[in-house]
Design a protein around this nucleic acid. Structure first.
Length: 556
RNA sequence: GCCCGGGUAGCUCAGUCGGAUAGAGCAUCAGGUUCCUAACCUGAGGGUCGCAGGUUCAAAUCCUGUCUCGGGCGCCA
């Protein structure tokens, strides 16, 4: 719609001897704060300098010239604003037709066609049951994958298992091999406490890592066993939430390769040995000024490789398979990731794009604190989802309705995390997070179920064309929201930010609920048109929620 | 100390490339169900957009300084 308006404006401005591109005008067009002012507006201040005229006069001039054009209900001038009221009927016809024609493809596009991509996300330390903080990575990653696929990218989803870590070594040291997944957290906490206190235990832990790296069969077996228990347990919880991966990569598979990486880095001359450690000098890069001394430490003084070295090897491998890579990382890895990027640049390799998100903090009595697996100060994802399911069951029982408690609970959990912009930390408190009213996942599902209910009960089967007699504000607002969806998807893609779609879903559902209350559908003289509108809403909300990894339900 | 993010209503958050009267939810108060699902809707109160300067016709939005919270800054991953 904006482009149509700017086309007209370009034409009219030419008459005033001012040549501007459609893009220039389109960028200036905005949506007025209130629909009473119009549907679109052009502030004319920027034209004042170019035309050396009073902006209010310019606005009036333009209006007089444009009024000859078709497609607008009316055009008004308010101050220096040129306000367009679009022809509602044709706009509604056009929007609804597009939604109903494209259905589950509405909002999609081909911009990713033939583009191969790899997204790595979640990659939780395989040491314990994940806490809700970790879920943010999985939810964001999963949603991004869905957005990319919706835009027709060919995406492969990878999960990196960090099986060569001090964390696992500690569990081996604590003889966790025979434990069940559920018992690992407690064990991890106690070993971590012990290792922190005793230098001797810590040395033994590193000794285990040394053996692992130097191919000690028995040690490797023990590491692998614990890793398997942890990864199986963790991915089971995530699978239960509908999150899946195409491929699991193991850090330990990159030990050999990482030695080659070290050799190649040595050839760059940017590496020096400090007390046994191999260190990459990052002077002269962006890192300078961000660290006390701009370096990246690649090995321990006993020669064993550190994670960055294996990560570089892993990343090079990913890039050799798929050129375009995205990796989802916590905010604590911002600097780290930049270091890796600099190392990759040195090796003349392309590098992935990173999506960073802030932490979920536990909020109690107005104070927030970071979760700590090591200290056991966490809300486990599994427990949280369990609480949400219980709550959903209770609500269903209270209302004596039908509904899938698990789907409602998952919607609540995912939406609560995804609606917040990734760069913002989430202050998490159980009460708010388990709320099912207002700006929540269940509200969205409820709106969807309502729409389904109307469609189920309507006997109107004409469904061929619709005639609009009168258009109410609520109806028009809903159509406007529907028409915004494709733009929102693109926005979310460009910014790699699912919260844009989450917030949009809420706006859309809210519009629908307002419409629902002010406009009767079944039995009304406008039933035919309104059924089309409800059907369109149902399609768009479903498409939108799908991108968040939230499944819709027909009844609740 | 340096670097990167936040700071918007009592609380949790939106706010498009700088635009008109800064918006939601929760909480509080007042209403709405013989009618398609009240997990809903309508209304009210509640704001120095952290603070101070600057740029601009116009600043929550851009610039500078400052306070504050989160993250990071050499052998964790």
């Amino acid at each position: 719609m904006k482009s149509e308006i700017s086309r007209v404006l370009v034409k009219v401005l030419k008459e005033k001897d001012l040549v501007l591109s459609e893009k220039e005008i389109e960028d200036k067009i905005e949506i007025p704060p209130s629909s009473e002012l119009g549907d679109y507006a052009l502030p004319c201040f920027f034209l004042a300098a170019k035309l050396r005229e009073n902006p209010v006069k310019i606005a009036n001039d333009l209006r007089n010239k444009i009024e000859r054009e078709k497609g607008f209900e009316k055009i008004e001038v308010k101050g220096a604003y040129l306000n367009f009221f679009i022809d509602k009927r044709s706009f509604i016809q056009k929007t609804i037709k597009e939604v109903l024609d494209k259905k589950e493809k509405y909002g999609s596009s081909d911009i990713g066609k033939d583009k191969k991509m790899m997204v790595e996300h979640t990659s939780i330390n395989p040491n314990a049951s994940p806490h809700v903080g970790r879920s943010r990575n999985a939810f964001i990653g999963d949603s991004l994958v869905k957005v990319l696929r919706f835009l027709n990218h060919n995406v492969e989803v990878h999960y990196l298992v960090n099986d060569v870590s001090k964390q696992i070594a500690m569990l081996v040291y604590g003889k966790a091999d025979n434990l069940k997944f559920e018992a690992m957290l407690k064990k991890y906490i106690s070993v971590a406490a012990k290792v922190k206190k005793s230098k001797k235990s810590e040395k033994e832990v590193f000794g285990l890592l040394y053996k692992f790296e130097h191919n000690d069969k028995e040690t490797i077996k023990r590491f692998k066993k614990i890793t398997k228990i942890a990864v199986d347990g963790q991915t089971k919880i995530l699978r239960n939430l509908g999150i899946r991966y195409d491929k699991f990569d193991y850090e330990s598979d990159y030990i050999t390769e990482s030695q080659k990486v070290l050799e190649n880095l040595k050839k760059t001359g940017k590496i020096f040995n400090d007390d046994g450690c191999w260190v990459l000098d990052l002077k002269g890069t962006k890192i300078e000024g961000q660290m006390k001394s701009p370096v990246l430490v690649l090995t321990r003084s006993d020669g064993t490789g550190l994670y960055p070295l294996r990560d570089i090897a892993y990343t090079l491998d990913k890039i050799s398979k798929t050129k375009e890579n995205i990796v989802v990382l916590g905010e604590d890895q911002k600097l780290y990731f930049q270091q890796i990027v600099e190392a990759l640049k040195l090796l003349k390799s392309p590098y992935p794009k990173a999506v960073h998100y802030s932490f979920i903090l536990l909020s109690e009595k107005g104070k927030s604190r970071k979760m700590s697996t090591r200290k056991g100060d966490v809300v486990l994802l599994e427990d949280f989802v369990g609480d949400a399911i219980k709550k959903a069951k209770k609500e269903i029982l209270k209302r004596k309705t039908k509904g899938d408690a698990k789907k409602i609970a998952i919607a609540a959990v995912k939406y609560a995390v995804l609606k917040i912009s990734p760069n913002k930390s989430i202050n998490f408190n159980l009460g708010d997070a388990l709320s099912f009213e207002g700006d929540t996942g269940p509200y969205l599902l409820y709106s969807y179920a309502r729409a389904c209910s109307i469609l189920r009960k309507s006997k109107n089967k004409t469904r061929k064309f619709f005639n609009i007699k009168e258009i109410s504000d609520k109806e028009f607002q809903l159509v406007k929201n529907l028409s915004e969806f494709p733009e929102m998807v693109l926005n979310s893609y460009k910014n790699l930010n699912p919260s844009i779609i989450a917030n949009y879903s809420y706006d859309l559902a809210q519009s629908f609920n307002e419409f629902y209350h002010s406009c009767k559908v079944i039995g009304d003289e406008n039933e035919n048109f309104r059924i089309f509108l409800v059907e369109s809403f149902k399609i768009v909300l479903k498409n939108s929620l799908n991108l968040l990894g939230i499944e819709t339900i027909k009844k609740m």
